[in-house]
Write a protein that binds this DNA or RNA. Structure first.
Lengths: 245, 245
DNA sequence: TTAATTAAGTGGCAATACGCCAATAATATG
DNA sequence: CATATTATTGGCGTATTGCCACTTAATTAA
C-alpha cells in the first residue's frame, strides 16, 4: 500500500483508527488523625455529575510529555495537592466501565503527608479528604470503587516489603510514629522490636536529633528522616506473616 | 451545558476529545534448550516495516470485552501461540515512542512452555522465538527494547517470590528441572536444599509418580505438576539474598 | 558382573533472624 | 518526690537459612 515510512506517515490519520477514550485516575492517600484518608473530588459536569470520584482526566497532547505528567497535572488542577510519591498501579479497559463505551484508564497511587486541598479548583464541585472506610461506602462514579480498592491493595501489599509509609509523614518523625503509619497502612499490628530491627537493617533513614512529638509525654525520642537518595520503594524484608498476593 | 446524563450522552462524540493511539504489546517468554527465549514478530507493514517487535496491536471495540482479551487475541493472531499465564506489566505513554505522535501502550508479560509458532499468521512477515540475549541486541521497532527490558525485569523480580517459572515447563517435571528454570529466569544460582525446602513449604505442587527426564542418567526423580487450583503467582518466601526493586 | 559415573534426595549443624516480653531510661505531671 | 507515660534495649527460646557432605538409585563403561 505505502512505499515508504514517510509516505505512510503523510497519510496517517488517527480517525482511521478505532480508538477508545483514555484517561488517568489518581488515588492519593494520606494519614490524618492516625487514620488512612483518600482524596476524592465531586464531579462538576456530566457524565456522573454530582458523584464523588477519583481525581483524574484526559491526556493533553500539547501539555503532557508522558502519562506521569498527565497524572501530576490532573491532581494539581483538581485538588491543588502535590505528591512526593506517585506510582502506576494498573490499567483498566473494558466496555462496561463507562456509559460512553469502550474506555481505558491508567490508575495511579500516590502518598503524601496531610495537606489541605485548594480553594479554587477546576471543573470539580469540591475536593475533600475522606476517611478511607467512609469513602468506600459512597456511591462512587463509574467503576471507581474498584479502582480505589485496587490502589488500596497495592498500598497494603507494598507497605509490607518497602518503607513507602514514610511518604505519609512529615519529616522528622519518630520510629513510633512511623510504626503507627505502617500499622494503619498494613492493617495489622507489628511487634515493636521486630519493626525497629527491620527498619534499622534497611538503613534508609537517618537520625536528625531528638525531640518529643507535638504534645508528647514520656521519654524523648530519636527523630528520623528519609536518607537522601535512598529509594523508599526498595525491597526490605517482609513484616509479620507474609502471604497473599 | 447539559441538563441530564441522558442529554449529555446523546451529544457525546469521541472525536471531540483529543485521544491518543492506544495499543497492547505482549512479551512472551519461554525456556528452550535451557535458555530464556522471547517471541518476536517481523513487522509486515508500515510504520517500521521489516523491523522486529513485540506482538501486539490495537483494541477491537467490537470483539474485545477488555484489555486482557485484546492481548490474548493479538497474540494468537500474530503468532499462533496461546499462553497459560499473562499479566499486565505497565502502561507507557508519551510523545516520543511513536512517530505518529502521542501514543499509549499497555504492556503484558506472558509465560509458556515451548511451542512452535504458527505457519500462517496475520499482518506480520514472520514470528520467531529468539534467545533473549540475541533479541535485545536487535534494532527493535519503536521503543520495544525498553518494553522488553521492563517485562524481563518483572519476570526476574517475580520469579524471586512466586513460583511463576512453572509456567515455562511442561508438566510433569522434576525439581531439578524446575530449579534450572528458576535459575535461568532469576539469573542466579540457587542452593539445592534451600530451593527444595522452599518449594515444598509453598505446597503448590503435587507429586505425580516418578521417572527420568528424557535421556536422563542417574537416580530416578519424583515428578511434579502444579497443584490444581493453586495460585502460581502467590507469594512465597524470597530466594537467596533479597534486595533491589 | 563389577566398578565408575551421574544425578536425586537427605542429614546435620553453625549462624542468623524472629517473636515475645521484660527491664531500664528519660521525660512530663500531680 | 512519686507516678504515669513513652522510648529504647536486652535476652532468650525457636524457626529458618546457607552450606556441604553423605546416601541412594539409576546408567554406562570395563
Amino acid at each position: 500500500m505505502f512505499t515508504s515510512e514517510k509516505e505512510y506517515l503523510k497519510h496517517y490519520n488517527i480517525h482511521d483508527y478505532d480508538v477508545p477514550l483514555v484517561s488517568v485516575d489518581i488515588a492519593i492517600f494520606t494519614l490524618l488523625d492516625g487514620k488512612l484518608h483518600i482524596l476524592l473530588v465531586e464531579r462538576g459536569d456530566f457524565p456522573q455529575k454530582g458523584r464523588w470520584s477519583l481525581p483524574g482526566g484526559f491526556i493533553n497532547q500539547q501539555q503532557d510529555k508522558d502519562l506521569h505528567a498527565t497524572a501530576l497535572r490532573k491532581l494539581t488542577e483538581k485538588t491543588g495537592v502535590k505528591t512526593p510519591h506517585l506510582e502506576q498501579v494498573a490499567t483498566i479497559g473494558n466496555t462496561k466501565r463507562d456509559p460512553r463505551g469502550w474506555s481505558v484508564t491508567v490508575l495511579y497511587m500516590g502518598l503524601i503527608p496531610y495537606a489541605p486541598t485548594a480553594d479554587f479548583i477546576e471543573t470539580v464541585a469540591d475536593a475533600r479528604w475522606w476517611p478511607y472506610e467512609v469513602a468506600i461506602k459512597q456511591n462512587l462514579a463509574f467503576d471507581h470503587i474498584e479502582l480505589v480498592t485496587q490502589a488500596r491493595e497495592r498500598l497494603r501489599v507494598k507497605s509490607g516489603y518497602t518503607v513507602l509509609p514514610v511518604y505519609v509523614l512529615n519529616a522528622p518523625f519518630t520510629l513510633t510514629q512511623l510504626q503507627q503509619a505502617f500499622e494503619e497502612l498494613l492493617g495489622t499490628e507489628i511487634e515493636k522490636k521486630s519493626f525497629r530491627r527491620r527498619i534499622q537493617a534497611a538503613d534508609l533513614l537517618e537520625e536528625v536529633g531528638e525531640g518529643l512529638p507535638e504534645g508528647g509525654r514520656g521519654r524523648i525520642a530519636a527523630l528520623y528522616r528519609p536518607r537522601k537518595g535512598s529509594e523508599q520503594h526498595a525491597f526490605i524484608r517482609a513484616f509479620g506473616g507474609s502471604e497473599e498476593d
